Computed example of a mutant assay.
Amino acid sequence: MTALRLTKPTLAVLEILISSTDDNPPWGLSICHEADLGPGTVYPILDRLKTLGWVTTRVEEEPHPGRPPRMYYTLTGAGRAEASASIAARSARRRGLLRLAGGTA
């Protein structure tokens, strides 16, 4: 399994996925808009998360004339735990760096 690099865009996508609910899961372009990132950034991140087993996908079932069906993304149980732990670890590292730099955490 490949390790996930916690870049700012990856963290933004993870935070959106963590804050989503089962009855209102995000889809690709909604993640792009909410994270203020382009599809060329978001979709590769989602693909990596799916490869790691952190997210599952499902295709929208209801037909919507004029656009293709949406692909919904949901964190798996393990993905939610990994994402939460990764975000917490990143936050702790940043607080530690701020303390070393003489700032406040």
Rank of each mutant, 00 (worst) to 15 (best):
residue 1 M to Q: 13
residue 1 M to T: 11
residue 2 T to W: 08
residue 5 R to P: 15
residue 6 L to S: 10
residue 9 P to W: 12
residue 10 T to Q: 10
residue 11 L to S: 12
residue 13 V to Q: 00
residue 14 L to R: 04
residue 17 L to C: 07
residue 20 S to C: 05
residue 23 D to Q: 07
residue 24 N to V: 08
residue 34 E to N: 06
residue 34 E to W: 00
residue 35 A to F: 03
residue 38 G to V: 08
residue 45 I to W: 01
residue 45 I to Y: 01
residue 46 L to T: 02
residue 49 L to R: 01
residue 51 T to K: 15
residue 52 L to N: 10
residue 53 G to F: 09
residue 55 V to L: 05
residue 57 T to K: 12
residue 57 T to I: 10
residue 58 R to N: 13
residue 58 R to T: 14
residue 62 E to L: 06
residue 63 P to N: 03
residue 64 H to A: 08
residue 66 G to S: 07
residue 66 G to D: 06
residue 68 P to L: 11
residue 71 M to I: 13
residue 72 Y to H: 14
residue 73 Y to N: 01
residue 75 L to R: 00
residue 76 T to G: 03
residue 76 T to Y: 02
residue 76 T to H: 01
residue 77 G to F: 03
residue 80 R to L: 05
residue 80 R to Q: 03
residue 82 E to G: 05
residue 86 S to V: 05
residue 88 A to L: 13
residue 88 A to I: 10
residue 90 R to P: 00
residue 91 S to V: 06
residue 91 S to Y: 08
residue 92 A to H: 06
residue 92 A to Y: 01
residue 92 A to R: 09
residue 94 R to H: 12
residue 95 R to T: 05
residue 95 R to Y: 02
residue 98 L to K: 15
residue 99 R to C: 01
residue 99 R to M: 07
residue 103 G to Y: 14
residue 104 T to I: 12
residue 105 A to M: 03
